[in-house]
């Protein structure tokens, strides 16, 4: 029997699955990984050379194998985005010469795969820590990193909660024959979000918490 594909995976899987294992990539500090990813992206974006793009794709695949991460988990990304990538390929074939087309595709693929590798080996909560450190220098502008971190943590918790309620709203809409009605699908989600925000804000107020 074929498994039906569900449009939204509920609960914590919504924010991506981590690859199993405890490799050097899993253990590396999230800040370092984000920094490397940023540098790689900048290099790929600036050099605009098909060889660089291809080299980065190779590097990402090599690291994946070294860290014993199932390559399929990396390539899921391509399966998810294949329509977009195919359209891009056709577009480049029509509008640009083959060299530019290869470069554009290699560049996009390299950057997306490198990001996917970070995602597979990093806990979302660690990224909030990175965000807080990134924002430290902006304190003199009046920005409070603790508040931003608190908002980010609330967001992480709200995503699975709202994804569930969106899923449920979609089912209710279907039950009423309104699955094509964008309003019927989004309004319950929005009201649920407002309610969740109010409850969260009240709880924070009651505890006297303004930053994390």
């Amino acid at each position: 029997m074929r498994l039906r594909r569900r449009p939204l995976r509920p609960r914590e899987q919504v924010l991506g699955r981590r690859a199993p294992g405890d490799s050097f990539l899993h253990r590396a500090p999230a800040g370092a990984k984000v920094l490397v990813l940023a540098l790689v992206t900048v290099v790929v974006l600036l050099l605009r050379d098909p060889l660089v793009g291809v080299a980065v794709v190779g590097l990402v695949l090599g690291l994946t194998l070294l860290a014993r991460i199932p390559v399929l988990m990396l390539l899921v990304l391509i399966r998810r985005l294949w329509i977009v990538l195919a359209v891009l390929a056709v577009l480049q074939w029509i509008l640009n010469d083959p060299a530019t087309g290869t470069e554009v595709l290699a560049r996009i693929l390299a950057c997306l795969l490198a990001a996917q590798l970070l995602l597979l080996t990093t806990d979302p909560v660690e990224l909030v820590g990175v965000l807080r450190r990134v924002l430290q220098p902006l304190r003199f502008l009046g920005l409070r990193p603790g508040r931003v971190a608190l908002a980010a943590l609330i967001m992480l918790r709200a995503v699975p909660y709202l994804a569930d309620s969106f899923h449920m709203g979609a089912q209710q809409a279907r039950a009423r024959g309104l699955e094509r009605d964008l309003r019927a699908r989004t309004v319950p989600l929005l009201l649920g979000a407002v309610d969740h925000a109010r409850n969260t804000g009240r709880a924070l107020n009651a505890r006297g918490i303004e930053e994390a």
Binding site: A197, R198, L204
Partner: peptide
């Protein structure tokens, strides 16, 4: 506190809406 909660939850709302399967149309990426 209430503002922070609204900001966090609405950032999550954008994410959840972005998760609905994308619909690529025509000849663009």
């Amino acid at each position: 506190s209430q503002d922070i909660a609204l900001i966090g939850v609405f950032a999550a709302l954008i994410a959840v809406l972005a998760f609905t399967p994308p619909i690529p149309v025509g000849n663009f990426g």
